[in-house]
């Protein structure tokens, strides 16, 4: 049932990459528990604009859990207290009346803050550019049904491919490792005959790029899997390691 709650928000404000940043505290009254977390942020911003203050900058776009743009660290958890959701899918019914909510950006060496709660995740694109594709150009490809693919493989590839590139895995990892993200892409493609051809090389190049960009090493803490809003499995990391080893052996 719908209810109204009052909240205290502790929000990270940082006016650009070079600013030191600080927490600001805001009060919000009468927030409907049926509203989403980002709608609550809209209400806060409307209030700030009406007071002549600068609204809080945060990333978002689809607001249905698929674009991977939203990225808040809420009460110490990426994407907040609910499981298997992105921040935009989080609803205020998960919070209590009178609660204090702390809202921070992703914090990781690989993702520098741009403003307030917005970080720069271009590193993910750079990692994909290093090999996260099949090397085929438009046209001249075989018929889609030319190669049958076992349903289990296709389904498993689909699960790995559900990664939305949000970066929660990196944000939650004490080492700031991007292994879950990289392994999801390596697995997605390695599981399909079309991607298998370049699997080992792809793994090697993507891992090298990840290291180069300052992401940390994976020590198998498993935190990433817990916070991944799309349930991307840590078993993908094992597959990545296998492909990586193959590439090393071939060298």
């Amino acid at each position: 049932m719908e209810n109204n709650i009052s909240l205290t928000l502790k929000v990270w404000r940082q006016n650009g990459p070079k600013d030191k940043g600080r927490f600001e505290t805001y009060k919000l009254d009468k927030v409907s528990t049926d509203s989403s977390f980002l709608e609550m942020m809209d209400i806060l911003n409307e209030q700030l604009v009406n007071e002549g203050k600068e609204p809080v900058a945060f990333d978002h776009d689809c607001r249905e859990g698929i674009c991977g743009m939203c990225s808040l660290y809420i009460n110490g958890r990426p994407h907040g207290p609910d499981d298997d959701v992105t921040t935009c899918q989080l609803h205020m019914r998960k919070f209590k009346d009178g609660e204090t909510i702390t809202i921070e950006p992703w914090r990781s060496a690989g993702f520098p803050v741009i403003k307030d709660l917005i970080v720069n995740r271009n590193a993910f694109d750079t990692i994909i550019a290093a090999g996260g594709y099949t090397s085929v150009s438009t046209g001249g490809v075989p018929d889609a049904n030319a190669i049958p693919i076992p349903k289990v493989d296709a389904d498993e590839a689909m699960d790995a491919a559900s990664c939305i590139g949000c970066g929660a895995c990196v944000a939650t990892c004490k080492n700031g490792s991007a292994m879950l993200f990289v392994s999801a892409k390596v697995s997605h493609l390695a599981l399909l005959p079309q991607g298998k051809v370049e699997a080992a090389r792809r793994a090697k190049n993507m891992v090298a790029k990840m290291d180069e960009l300052g992401f940390g090493n994976c020590t198998n803490t498993g935190a990433c899997e817990v916070e991944c809003p799309k349930g991307v499995s840590i078993s993908n990391i094992a597959r990545l390691n296998r492909e990586f080893l193959k590439a090393k052996l071939a060298d």
Binding site: Y133, T134, V136, V141, A144, P148, K151, A154, A157, Q194
Partner: peptide, 13 residues
Amino acid sequence: IDQCVAQGVPFAR
């Protein structure tokens, strides 16, 4: 559809 399969789009099977 041919192009997407070649790219590794995991269509339902």
